[in-house]
């Protein structure tokens, strides 16, 4: 796992870029004045807040990260139809469960990303992480096979994240 290197003058390049783009989106224009102001904000805000930020692991494989994003979006749509069917069906056919998933990931950012994907995708909501960051507790709306669920989450979401962050 490689931590982010710190440059003194541009401490958070990715965040600076995101700030710049969001500023232009908010104002909905590419006028020179807005670009100048956006660049100024994107440079000064990270300078002010960088001492508060904890160091996070770096994205190593950018192509895989983009592919992961699209896969998650596709899964969100699929999962929504699944949840819709479960909601419309009768309550007594539901089979809710708490499941503990062993984590192989390290670092706060990858675990947060995994928990968020789990919350948004297949009929599960992440509820809690154990203190030693080894277990993720998940509530499933309808559980058919516990080992299959754990296997699916580990192979489909955790493995790519592990590769992206190299940890």
């Amino acid at each position: 796992m490689k931590l982010q290197a710190r440059n003194r003058w541009i401490p958070m390049p990715a965040q600076s870029f995101i700030l710049f783009v969001v500023w232009l989106l908010l104002n909905n224009s590419v006028a020179p004045g807005q670009i100048l102001l956006g660049a100024f904000l994107a440079w000064t805000i990270p300078l002010l807040v960088s001492p508060m930020q904890a160091r996070q692991p770096r994205v190593l494989r950018h192509g895989l990260a983009v592919r992961y994003t699209f896969m998650v979006m596709y899964d969100i749509v699929v999962a929504n139809f699944e949840v819709a069917m479960r909601v419309l069906g009768p309550n007594r056919r539901l089979n809710p469960a708490f499941v503990a998933i062993p984590l192989d990931l390290e670092g706060d950012l990858p675990i947060t990303l995994l928990a968020s994907t789990i919350s948004l995708t297949p009929g599960t909501v992440s509820t809690e992480v154990s203190e030693d960051r080894r277990w993720l507790y998940v509530h499933a709306l309808h559980l058919e096979n516990e080992t299959a669920l754990i296997e699916q989450i580990k192979s489909r979401y955790e493995a790519p994240l592990k590769e992206i962050f190299g940890c």
Binding site: N95, P96, A97, V99, A100, S130, E146
Partner: peptide, 10 residues
């Protein structure tokens, strides 16, 4: 709900 004891440890 299956695994209700997990809620305790969670």
């Amino acid at each position: 709900t299956q695994g209700r004891s997990l809620a305790e440890s969670a």
